[in-house]
């Protein structure tokens, strides 16, 4: 590494991201401590009203719902993704299986949500089938509740979990599993005590890749949820566009940001300590973490070639 024109090359990126990414984040921190203006905007006087408002029961209910839905959907996603990643990693047709997982993922995000409206709606595919089979006369209301939100979230983010799990399990040396079996471990025991500790990094990446977007979900609960399945994302949008309470919207955004960042830091730290036995430096742990993260995004993105092609 040398001195040279590096600073010059990096200046546009530094300026752009500072102005349009970091500064806006600082502005919402500032705004969250101000008084709301009459029609949006803020008045320049310091107050903790926004944070007081977050603590009230209505908000607490939405926060709780967001946490329950996000944890539940993430857990289900991981439970489905683990065997999928395992099967793909052990397969001889990896490229084909990867394509099968990625092709639905190429479909536009809103179209994927919409497809579920077409299936679960009152005049949708499922009700149509049930009525044709004579199982029901009236259409059943599948949409606009918490279960529909969770289902569509799992559907949307499943590939986010499968891809990092696949790439980690793929790197695992399966002769270790055979060795464990030879030494008398049961099938399940070998998987739990030899495979799982080795793919912890991938599980963590998959967890974060799924949990973070689900925790900040906006479009899915908006389109397939009802009032009881409101999530924090919807609350922010309402405060911004309907109630025009910018400080409150900022404060809720800040809570999501903090939960996300603290979550990432805690998990990376816990995981780094476990995987590396705590002996190595933190920076190395971080590199270990970011590698699969980046790798997963590379595989996940349509044309970057992926690991298996």
């Amino acid at each position: 590494m040398k001195r040279g024109p590096g600073g010059l090359y990096a200046t546009p990126a530094i300026v752009w991201l500072t102005v349009f990414f970091i500064a806006p984040l600082f502005i919402i921190v500032l705004y969250s401590f101000l008084r709301p203006g009459l029609r949006g905007g803020v008045e320049w006087s310091l107050t903790f009203d926004a944070y007081r408002a977050i603590a009230n029961p209505t908000f607490a209910k939405v926060t709780l719902n967001t946490i329950v839905v996000a944890l539940g959907a993430t857990l289900v996603t991981l439970l489905i993704a683990l065997p999928c990643g395992y099967y793909m990693a052990r397969s001889k047709n990896q490229t084909l299986l990867l394509l099968l997982v990625i092709i639905p993922f190429w479909t536009n995000f809103l179209i994927r949500i919409y497809a579920w409206i077409a299936i679960l709606g009152n005049e949708g595919f499922l009700n149509d089938m049930l009525q044709a089979l004579g199982l029901t006369n009236d259409s059943i209301r599948f949409l606009y509740n918490r279960w529909a939100v969770a289902l569509v979230l799992v559907y949307t983010y499943l590939p986010y979990a499968i891809l990092p799990l696949f790439s980690t399990i793929d790197k695992f040396d399966f002769s270790l599993l055979e060795a464990a079996r030879d030494l008398g471990a049961s099938k399940f025991g070998a998987i739990r005590r030899v495979l799982m500790p080795n793919i912890k990094g991938g599980v963590l990446t998959a967890f974060l890749f799924t949990f973070i977007p689900i925790f900040g979900a906006y479009a899915v609960p908006l389109l397939v949820g009802g009032t009881e399945s409101y999530m924090l994302g919807n609350l922010i949008a309402d405060e911004l566009t309907k109630s025009r309470n910018w400080p409150l919207a900022s404060a809720i955004s800040l809570v999501i940001t903090l939960v996300t960042t603290i979550g990432v830091m805690l998990l990376v730290r816990a995981n780094g300590a476990n995987v590396l036995g705590g002996g190595k430096e933190a920076s190395e742990a971080k590199a270990e973490q970011s590698a699969p993260l980046l790798n997963a995004s590379l595989v996940a993105l349509p044309h970057s070639g992926g690991g298996a092609s």
Partner: peptide, 17 residues
């Protein structure tokens, strides 16, 4: 690592402000 909505909201407030 940040949810999209945070980027959207902070930019909206930034632009409007």
């Amino acid at each position: 690592i940040l949810p999209e909505i945070i980027i959207g909201v902070s930019l909206l407030i930034f632009f409007s402000g």
